[in-house]
Design a protein around this nucleic acid. Structure first.
Lengths: 125, 125
DNA sequence: ATACGTGTACTATACGATTAATACACCTGT
DNA sequence: ACAGGTGTATTAATCGTATAGTACACGTAT
């Protein structure tokens, strides 16, 4: 488990995004247990309250479920799970398009650049 | 002159980005005068200090020049101007790719989505 | 039973970045 | 001379986030 934090966004939101990615890519599966708040906090070197805030956010979004004091688990709600991947992608694309649309870039040029950068980035790992 | 602010990023950075876009698209040209700090602040309903911070940032990036207390002007440095457009595009693409790379998206699918959203967004105006 | 880990809740504090409020020196046109 | 606008600098106030500290009820394994 490894999360790379940037300094711009709130930590708890970055944690949420990390879990979303793990779920969307199948590295975390439906019903699977996730670390306890304190455990996660220790692993990521963050405060337990920050971990709790992240989990609470995920709970509210229906991503995880928690019963009693047993470890939280990834939801088994298929609607949530199946829409998550698309949601993540669309959000990213929308943010991207918003940031670029005021500059007049021909669509072909833009796609070419995206393709190139994407390929280069993925070949790095 | 109109800038649409979001609530996430600092205002002064959004102002900087606005001017960069105006320059990159040619709506602001080399040597052209830009509003005074107070004038800009009035027009955008922001604090004069915020305008000043934005201008200072642009000054440090070599985008504008200011002599004495006469109005600031867009730089005439061709190297800065010509690289600005590409820089803006590449920055946006890099940010986008960073946000999407942890999700395994086939490049073709990604490009298709970008193309679609981009076209839809541009047809709106 | 008892110690331990769990989720949850609440308050308080610290810190950083952003924004606001003032003040100052300079120039310029009237 | 002087009023008004300019850029600039310094300080104060604001605000969100993160962290710290503590507390409580609930299970469970020892």
């Amino acid at each position: 488990m490894k999360v790379t934090f940037n300094n711009r966004d709130p930590v708890y939101l970055q944690v949420v995004r990390y879990f979303k990615q793990e779920i969307a890519t199948g590295r975390l599966q439906a019903g699977q247990e996730i670390p306890s708040r304190r455990e996660l906090a220790g692993a990521l070197h963050i405060n337990p309250n920050t971990a709790q805030k992240a989990y609470k956010e995920m709970e509210e979004q229906g991503l995880i479920r928690t019963e009693g004091n047993s470890p939280s688990r990834i939801t088994t709600d298929e609607r949530v799970l199946s829409s998550l991947r698309e949601e993540l992608i669309l959000d990213a694309v929308h943010t991207f398009v918003s940031s670029i649309k005021t500059i007049d870039v021909p669509v072909d040029e833009l796609l070419h650049i995206v393709k190139e950068v994407y390929a280069k980035e993925r070949s790095k790992e």
